[in-house]
């Protein structure tokens, strides 16, 4: 039995729309796989070392909160990007995803810098993109459907055409409601607008993270969980979207 440590970044500031459910999901699944899991919360000003955690999760917040987080995160950004390059699993939802790009232009004319990990920007536009969303995605070579709920005013545009989206929109809006891309995928990082939360209804992605973490720890996971309820919930959203 091994101990997995998940970092929950800024849980007090960046936790809209039940996104912490992603962590509950990973923790329980790790336990069911026979391991243990500790979730460590990091807030503004906390000292932490991203090489000491197995995975990083960060959710979305309102504009005011996002700015506080940006200032704090900028101090650690070099170290964090190096870890991402070496395969640190990261899940960044909504506002946290937007922070990974170069900038955020709010609809009232404010310009906020991003961490510049990737060459994309986000622009606030008229009308929020809200509703159930279905994607096609490739996880570990397998084509799967991904379901969730999106709710964002910002539209994200890739400037570097070699960036790989997390999925292709089947139903809903995605990054910008125009080019049918959703989110970003880079090594073991996924940035996405999908709330829901994402992982419980998409157990294949939860297990992708668990395998990525395990591989880095040199642990093999060779059992399968009973995902009847997970698949039922997944199918229920797929049917709604038909």
């Amino acid at each position: 039995m091994a101990l997995y440590t998940l970092a929950h970044m800024y849980p007090d500031l960046m936790n809209l729309y039940g996104d912490r459910g992603n962590l509950f999901c990973l923790r329980k699944r790790l336990e069911w796989y026979g391991h243990s899991c500790s979730i460590k919360s990091y807030g503004l000003g906390d000292n932490w070392d991203c090489s000491q955690v197995d995975m990083i999760f960060m959710g979305g917040g309102s504009d005011r909160e996002q700015e506080l987080v940006y200032r704090d995160l900028l101090r650690k950004s070099d170290r964090l990007m190096a870890e991402i390059e070496s395969g640190l699993p990261v899940l960044a939802i909504c506002g946290a995803y937007q922070l990974l790009g170069s900038s955020y232009h709010s609809s009232d004319g404010k310009l906020m810098d991003g961490l510049r990990f990737f060459d994309f920007y986000t622009r606030g536009e008229e009308g929020r993109l809200i509703g159930n969303i279905v994607l096609n995605s490739k996880i570990e070579g397998k084509s799967i459907s991904v379901v969730g709920f999106e709710n964002h005013g910002g539209r994200t545009y890739f400037q570097d055409s070699s960036l790989e989206p997390f999925g292709t929109v089947v139903k809903g809006y995605g990054n910008n409601g125009k080019d049918r891309t959703e989110g970003i995928r880079y090594h073991n990082l996924i940035g996405s607008y999908l709330h829901g939360p994402l992982l419980p209804k998409n157990p294949a992605i939860a297990d992708f993270y668990i395998r990525a973490m395990s591989e880095r720890k040199g642990i093999e996971i060779d059992m399968e969980l009973d995902d009847y309820l997970e698949n039922y919930a997944h199918q229920q959203v797929l049917k709604k979207a038909e």
């Binding site: 729309y17 039940g18 996104d19 459910g21 809200i130 509703g131 709920f149 709710n151």
Partner: peptide
């Protein structure tokens, strides 16, 4: 409310 994610909060 179309978004049911609040049950996770």
């Amino acid at each position: 409310g179309r978004d049911i994610s609040w049950i996770w909060d």
